[in-house]
Design a protein around this nucleic acid. Structure first.
Lengths: 153, 153
DNA sequence: ACATACTTGTTAGGTAGCTAGCGAGAGTGG
DNA sequence: CCACTCTCGCTAGCTACCTAACAAGTATGT
């Protein structure tokens, strides 16, 4: 009876990964809305506020998004006056990102977001969470490799 | 040594859920690009081709997206001539979606996408997949409930 | 019968992702 | 030294997600 439809959950991992991602982002967005900040903008500010000035291309790698996507996010933060962008002295192609005084002030006013993770995962067995991470990581690796091969003749 | 940092994986579930979702969508998009179709457009076509004419608001519920998002996706499919949209006779608010001849023809030419799930999950223990689904579902439920309470005073 | 409330879809505007293609700067081989 | 290639960021244009506000149609309560 347990074997009713073997592997039926395969169909669901992707769907739930999507819904979980969007649910988490929705909570984050709703907390950040009063501050007129998006979730990825928050992450860039987090990096610049807690780690320090960072090269734009390093942030691209950290967030695992495309260069073009980062361009837009940085442009928004610069437009709002929260972040400064200046060319590196030795390599003029790269740009260094630095939080501004206004950005640091806003960062100080933002609420702590760690409650989101608590709500989502408190009480769930750590071993189960480790298994979930393993499944997602394996699937992602395989899909990303497939994509590489497919596009790179 | 295993207990090094209890619950460290909590920080990762969200990140991997996101990457897994985007990796899957990227593969889907790259297969569908030659046909000038996006992943959600594919799903709408799938529904209309295999199940039959469907009310727009039912599709909204099936895909768990907002009405406004669906408006855009349907508009694109109508513009391409793949789908027809007509008001229901008894309830003029609702709109019925139906695949067109051109849509059915295109549907017949599309490749099978099930290989994506095989690549992602083949060889992974079914029990582990079930656990992953459980973790994602639990976290999603809690986040969605939190959001409901927060926005609905 | 009519005011009120709910449902459905649309419009407007914003966030976050993508590809394709360009240009400028930096590195490399002949 | 010059051509070639690679890297980094930007632009343009697309998909897919969201909220907020509105209009039209339906349902409901007095």
């Amino acid at each position: 009876m347990v074997e009713k439809r073997k592997g039926a959950d395969r169909d669901l991992v992707g769907a739930w990964a999507k819904r979980c991602y969007f649910a988490g982002r929705a909570v984050m967005d709703s907390v950040l809305r009063p501050y007129d900040l998006g979730s990825v903008q928050w992450y860039v500010l987090y990096q610049l506020a807690t780690v320090g000035p960072t090269m734009q291309r390093d942030l691209v790698r950290l967030l695992a998004i495309e260069r073009a996507t980062m361009t837009g996010i940085v442009a928004t933060l610069v437009r709002k006056g929260l972040v400064e962008q200046e060319p590196d002295r030795t390599d003029q192609r790269q740009k260094l990102l630095r939080i501004t005084a206004a950005g640091a002030k806003l960062w100080g006013e933002l609420p702590d977001l760690s409650f989101i993770r608590s709500v989502a995962f408190d009480g769930i067995d750590d071993a189960d969470i480790a298994i979930a991470v393993g499944v997602l990581r394996t699937a992602t690796d395989r899909l990303e490799k497939l994509l590489e091969k497919g596009t790179h003749p």
